[in-house]
């Protein structure tokens, strides 16, 4: 399967690292929008912040998927 091959090619640890670095600004923007509820923080928090947060979670899911499939492949080879 092409998708499976594509996903297993990505390192789970690298994906988790990307997810973490994407989540940090996303969370900070959300916190900023609560502490300073003016136009720019609220807009950023609800658009860019949430977009980055979703991307971070997708990276995490991909990492889990990649790791699971890699383990399956390894056990099949053994």
């Amino acid at each position: 399967m092409n998708l499976r091959r594509l996903v297993t090619r990505w390192s789970p640890n690298k994906l988790i690292k990307i997810a973490c670095w994407l989540a940090i600004p996303a969370l900070l923007m959300m916190a900023w929008s609560v502490m300073v509820p003016t136009v720019v923080p609220v807009l950023l928090g609800m658009s860019l912040g949430q977009g980055l947060g979703v991307l971070a979670f997708l990276c995490y899911l991909l990492a889990v998927l990649s790791d699971t499939w890699r383990q399956n492949e390894a056990s099949r080879e053994e």
Binding site: L27, M30, A31, S33, V34, P37, V42, G45, M46, G49, Q50, G53
Partner: peptide, 9 residues
């Protein structure tokens, strides 16, 4: 955080 910040915003 996203849900609560959206409602608050």
């Amino acid at each position: 955080a996203a849900v609560s910040s959206t409602v608050t915003g």
